[in-house]
Amino acid sequence: MWRGRALRRGPLLALALVLGALWWWAVLRLALLPEQTGAIEGAVAAGGWGLSLLPVHVISAASAGVTTRASRRRRSGAESDPS
């Protein structure tokens, strides 16, 4: 079961690392050598920054299969735990 997931995640992880390295290269080039950079570096840096604004890590609890329960409120007259 884990082996199948690892095989599917491997190429995605490699792609994410390559794209992240490309973005950092463009950002550092813009910051350190602004007179030698072109439109491609600017587009890569702006595109990566724009993607970082998207909430791609947020999913609904229903699609994740997570169920939650509300915690019970204590009565105002109830004593606290001695510990």
Rank of each mutant, 00 (worst) to 15 (best):
S63D: 09
A64F: 09
E41S: 15
L7V: 04
V18P: 00
I40R: 05
L13F: 13
E41L: 11
G77R: 02
S76F: 01
P11D: 01
I59Q: 10
V56S: 14
L19W: 01
S63I: 05
G48F: 02
A16H: 09
A31Q: 10
L15I: 02
A6Q: 04
R75D: 07
L53P: 00
L13T: 04
A64R: 07
W23L: 02
A39G: 12
S83Y: 12
R69D: 02
R69E: 03
L33K: 09
P82Y: 09
G10M: 07
E35P: 00
V18G: 01
L53N: 13
R69A: 08
E35Y: 12
A46L: 11
A61T: 07
R74S: 13
L13V: 05
G50Y: 14
A16G: 05
R73M: 10
P82K: 03
W25I: 01
L53V: 11
V58W: 13
A43H: 13
A31W: 11
G10K: 06
R73C: 10
V18R: 00
R72T: 07
G4N: 10
T67Q: 11
A61P: 00
L30K: 04
L33I: 03
R5Q: 11
R9F: 14
S63W: 13
A46K: 07
V66R: 04
V27I: 05
G47Q: 04
R29H: 14
L32T: 13
A16T: 02
L7D: 02
R75G: 13
A45S: 06
A21N: 02
W25K: 05
A70L: 07
T37V: 14
P55D: 12
R75C: 09
L17W: 06
R69H: 08
V56L: 15
V44N: 01
W24R: 03
L22S: 03
G65C: 04
R69N: 03
P34L: 08
W24N: 03
A14K: 01
A14I: 00
R5G: 08
A39Y: 15
A43C: 11
V66W: 15
A43N: 10
L22Y: 02
